[in-house]
């Protein structure tokens, strides 16, 4: 009886430990966001968003970095989206089980685990030097596109896999070809799931810093990029730059820019979750 009581007590203790652990990360995140808001919120105004960078903290803004992020985001999407979805369709619907498909599978799983900074080294040699793009928006976008490609492929495959087999059977039975089945049935049915994965991948790209530093993105750009071949900076690099400066004012700038970056990231995640829920309901 005593043993059983002791076991119950241990069980209760672990339960509270589990709750504490679960809340720990979230509480820390809340503390951090709170402290950032206190530091940075007062600094955010329209000027902060529309001003060019400056060596004086109180006059500096994030305009060029923000525009750089937008450019990179759009180009990354244009490059990674068709490539990733096409690869996923091949793996899920066309590939026969065999050496090639298992090689592709191991390879994609491995790519997903390659540290982002390694993609930076790849981009530096291939895009910046060999293809002579220089440290341009285009080189940065290609680098990030390769980085998020495995994520896009994996999530697209999941979404296509979730479409019931009966849909395929039905389409084939009516005489549709494979591609017709994919294009008219599977892609529309898995659209919500694909969208969720793509948005999540892009939210990862928005926050990436290291690979872009490696390909030579600037920490100080006086002008917003106007073409894909222009040099650029992005929001996270701007934040990094401000963090590394000793003057007090820049820390406030960093906090303010972090608020904007978190806003973008959380918004994208929120949209992704929204689409996922909507899509899952539709799929039943």
């Amino acid at each position: 009886m005593n043993n059983i009581k002791a076991n119950r007590l241990k069980d209760q203790i672990f339960k509270f430990w589990g709750i504490a652990c679960t809340l720990l990360g979230l509480v820390l995140l809340a503390i951090f966001i709170g402290s950032i808001l206190i530091d940075g919120l007062q600094r955010i105004d329209w000027d902060f968003i529309t001003s060019l960078p400056s060596r004086k903290a109180e006059r500096a803004g994030i305009y060029t970095a923000l525009m750089g992020s937008v450019w990179v985001l759009v180009l990354t999407t244009i490059i990674a989206l068709p490539l990733g979805i096409a690869a996923a369709i091949y793996l899920e619907e066309y590939a026969r089980k065999g050496k090639l498909s298992s090689l592709l599978e191991v390879n994609i799983s491995n790519l997903a685990g390659v540290p982002s900074i390694i993609y930076g080294l790849l981009g530096l040699e291939i895009f910046v030097r060999i293809l002579e793009m220089g440290s341009s928006v285009l080189a940065g976008s290609f680098t990030l596109a390769l980085l998020i490609l495995p994520i896009v492929i994996v999530s697209t495959r999941e979404a296509i896999k979730a479409v019931p087999q009966s849909v395929r059977d039905g389409s084939f039975a009516l005489g549709a070809s494979k591609w017709q089945t994919v294009a008219r049935q599977l892609l529309p049915a898995s659209f919500g799931g694909i969208l969720t994965g793509v948005i999540l991948a892009l939210s990862r790209a928005v926050g990436e810093t290291a690979p872009l530093i490696v390909i030579g993105a600037l920490t100080y750009v006086p002008f917003a990029p106007e073409s894909p071949m222009d040099e650029f900076s992005v929001l996270p690099i701007q934040i990094f730059n401000w963090i590394s400066r000793p003057q007090e004012g820049f820390e406030v700038n960093a906090a303010a820019a972090i608020i904007i970056l978190l806003l973008i990231t959380f918004l994208m995640n929120g949209i992704a979750v929204f689409f996922r829920n909507k899509w899952q309901k539709k799929l039943g």
Partner: peptide, 27 residues
């Protein structure tokens, strides 16, 4: 048309292998 599409999709998938090879070669 079907064969062409399949080959294009295959090419996209093979690009992932190129990426790995690229990383290994460059490094």
């Amino acid at each position: 048309k079907e064969v062409f599409i399949e080959k294009s999709l295959l090419t996209s998938a093979l690009i992932t292998i190129l990426i790995t090879l690229g990383i290994i070669l460059v490094l």
